[in-house]
Simulated scan of single mutants.
Amino acid sequence: MSGRKLRSGELENQVLEVLWAAGEPMTPGAVHEVVAADRALAYTTVMTILTRLWEKDELTRRKDGRAYAYEPVVGRDQRVAQRMRAVLGAAEDHTLALNAFADSLPDEQRAALRKALGSRGPQR
């Protein structure tokens, strides 16, 4: 069992990872069972995280008996892209931030980025 207390964002990421791995809607009890398998974590904490993610439109939910079953709105890669856009939006100079990001990448990732951008063609 881990002695380190997780921040809310870390718990959100863990909950999303559980939901992505499941590939189907899960109730809070089922999510709690997985997330709390290796640490003491209250059911209400998992419920709070699910509710917050739903309120932020990152999850959908539907009735499943007396509870709700939750499912991610977007996949893992789409969420990462959203977070990258949010971070870029916080930069004062987008070009400078993008160049610094590209310069920080290993050669293989930089080549993949160049290829992805090249496949998009010119933007209008």
Rank of each mutant, 00 (worst) to 15 (best):
V34D: 06
A22P: 03
E33C: 01
D38I: 03
R39D: 06
L11F: 07
V15A: 01
A22E: 07
Y70I: 01
L11K: 09
E33G: 08
R4H: 08
Y70H: 12
Y68F: 15
L11A: 06
G65Y: 10
L98K: 14
Q82E: 11
K56V: 02
R79E: 05
M84F: 10
P72Y: 01
E24I: 03
Q109M: 08
W54Y: 15
Y43T: 05
A91W: 13
L53M: 05
E24F: 07
K56E: 12
K115D: 15
H32S: 04
A100K: 14
L53I: 06
R66A: 09
V31F: 01
R114S: 10
R83S: 10
P25F: 07
L105H: 09
R61G: 04
T44E: 14
R83N: 04
P28C: 02
G118L: 15
D107A: 15
T60W: 06
S119G: 03
A21W: 03
M26D: 09
A86S: 13
R83W: 06
P106C: 02
L11R: 15
A21H: 04
R76A: 05
G29V: 01
T44M: 11
K115S: 09
Y43L: 13
L59H: 04
Q78E: 15
L96H: 14
R85L: 15
E108D: 11
P122F: 09
L50Q: 00
A30Y: 00
E33K: 11
R52H: 08
K56F: 02
S8N: 06
R7N: 07
K63G: 15
G121Q: 09
E55R: 11
L53C: 04
A40T: 12
M1K: 12
H94M: 10
S2I: 06
N13G: 13
V46E: 02
A69H: 04
T48P: 02
M26I: 02
A21K: 15
R110K: 10
G65K: 01
T51A: 12
F101C: 14
N99F: 11
R52G: 05
G3T: 10
R120W: 07
W54D: 12
A91R: 14
T45F: 08
A36N: 10
G75D: 11
N13Q: 14
E12A: 11
W20K: 02
Q14W: 07
V46Q: 03
A90N: 10
A111F: 03
V46P: 05
W54N: 10
I49R: 15
